[in-house]
Design a protein around this nucleic acid. Sequence first.
DNA 1: TATGAATGAGTATTCATTCAT
DNA 2: GATGAATGAATACTCATTCAT
Lengths: 197, 197, 197, 197
Amino acid sequence: MGRPSNKPQRRAEIVQALMQVMAVKGYDGASIQEIAKQAGLAPGLIHYHFKTKQDILLEAVTQLSDLLKQRYLDLSKSAETAEDKLRLFIKARLAKGEGENQQAVVAWVMIGSEAVRQTEVKKVYLEAMKEQKEVLSELLQDYFQSNHPKGKLSEKQLETKVAFIMSFMEGAFSLSITSPEIMPENWAAEELMENLL
Amino acid sequence: MGRPSNKPQRRAEIVQALMQVMAVKGYDGASIQEIAKQAGLAPGLIHYHFKTKQDILLEAVTQLSDLLKQRYLDLSKSAETAEDKLRLFIKARLAKGEGENQQAVVAWVMIGSEAVRQTEVKKVYLEAMKEQKEVLSELLQDYFQSNHPKGKLSEKQLETKVAFIMSFMEGAFSLSITSPEIMPENWAAEELMENLL
Amino acid sequence: MGRPSNKPQRRAEIVQALMQVMAVKGYDGASIQEIAKQAGLAPGLIHYHFKTKQDILLEAVTQLSDLLKQRYLDLSKSAETAEDKLRLFIKARLAKGEGENQQAVVAWVMIGSEAVRQTEVKKVYLEAMKEQKEVLSELLQDYFQSNHPKGKLSEKQLETKVAFIMSFMEGAFSLSITSPEIMPENWAAEELMENLL
Amino acid sequence: MGRPSNKPQRRAEIVQALMQVMAVKGYDGASIQEIAKQAGLAPGLIHYHFKTKQDILLEAVTQLSDLLKQRYLDLSKSAETAEDKLRLFIKARLAKGEGENQQAVVAWVMIGSEAVRQTEVKKVYLEAMKEQKEVLSELLQDYFQSNHPKGKLSEKQLETKVAFIMSFMEGAFSLSITSPEIMPENWAAEELMENLL
DNA sequence: TATGAATGAGTATTCATTCAT
DNA sequence: GATGAATGAATACTCATTCAT
């Protein structure tokens, strides 16, 4: 009896709409009005599903983080060697996507700068980063164990390499958005592998 | 002859104030009122010196860009070899500064995300990036010419390396702000050299 | 024959919920959503039972008024003399109750200030007051007739005394809520009798 | 140099406007828009002078409290005996005023019910009440000392009497607003003296 | 009867910008 | 140049009420 719930779908739609608008106007520039219009919903409904605008952003962070994770999992099914897996991890994050993917990248960059000043955002952003760091650490350790004569990296070496790769990936995101003119086409993933591994 | 003009100083003060507030609250969060308070000026005076709020931001971009350039020039005076110069360039940008420098980094990250949506900001930001790219290209070319047997890099190789370094530096900025917890201490410059050159 | 109607119970539940929420947040602060939550009902159901929010308030006024009347009737069963009855009337209204009673007092104070601006509320509030006035007048007249040598009070004297008592009771309500710190404990009823009769 | 400050006047104007609107529509019903219109100011200006709407209310409480105090001080200049003073204190509070005074009474009643749910309001309201209580206690003590054979009242007796008078005055305010139909004309002050002293 | 999503007008508050002094 | 008051549009958020199921 009664009207069936559609919260999960609606929430997802709203998160999508936020990211679409945010990709063009930034987080502050994404007004509830415009998010609503983008989603084809009444403004008031946004706040029926999310208590605050920030809550939409927080859900976007986890959603994006999960998207990247999923992208890697999908790709890595076909990978056999440690090297392939590592390569695919990097590719999953850096391959310039079309449409939605491109938008996801922009959204991620924006979220990064929101993390600077919104404590809550920083928390979930950091959580996502830590998760990423762990996966990458493992992959990297596997890779070196199976490909390098000296085998296992020291804790410190590993941490340094991971930070290096993550920095590079984050920066590549950023510059691909803000300064595409100075970036070569389709280069990031392969280049990183070549230089680093 | 009237009061002597103090426009340049006032403008610089206002730009400084913007960056200080922006480092904490972001660009949108930096209200003219607060900028004024930070600068110790009356709100109305801000618009006497700058037509719009965006104009302050634009001046901040060039000011920051010049600051980084100057930092390199100061350091490079003592450099002899191509390798030293390259090393110092990277150091000038990545060395974690205290106080003002730290703030400049945050401001730069914020500006990056403003560049995504404000065309005018993007223009000057890109300009600064191009300038940086040129300097870096030259240094890199010199370095390889004098240190590697095969000598000069191809145009494409060079471009790729430059983009790589710039991406890394941009990302290191970003993560040092948003995710310091996952970054090693004091590592960036040396690590980059070791891995890349 | 369909579902058996439960309108009366539901309505009473909703009125109760309004008073509970109103006691904490005032009338304006008591949103339909919250009233619904307090009553354990769906928001939409509220408007199935009451056309408007104000209607709930109007019903609350009569419900509260009836409650006070009933309280007196229950108490007065055991009263014999005119003095006892009068004493019990005052006690019924002023005795600081626990839980529900306390809440009823707060609700009544809130209703008083709603009466100032909502004509409809004022109407029923006034009705309740008049009823109270009549009961009190009668009791008072009886009391003086049987206890004072000069017997019956003049119309004007009576009216004055009634207004006096009602003012005091209303103010004692109010201050017991807003300024309990400046009010003695458990004093009102006896004190009034002593001073007034 | 520069524009001269007019904050104090403006603030007073805004407080006045709040009380005028509040007298008709209650506190919640007094929107910033309407307060602004009543004061003949732009809505934005209200928040230039007061951080929040509640702040206007808080200032109103102290302003009203001061008004009542002043009213008593003005009247009591001519008073000689303790009895006169006491009489004038009560009169200052209860004498039904015209225009502004009437409005002040309504505003005070409204503030009372806001005090129930707004902690900040309660704080200042209570402060005003305590002040009033102290003045009244002193007057009452003086009165009894000079007029009654047994002299000084016990602490407890005094406290009870004060609470009694304050309750009555508060209730008389309230009913004069919400239920003028059941209240006699111009009666309160004299009646109180007669019954109580 | 009941549920819970949807609507849309309304609210306090912020803020870039302008203006009077 | 400088001050600080004033403007008015924009914004996130609330909420009584309606509606689809």
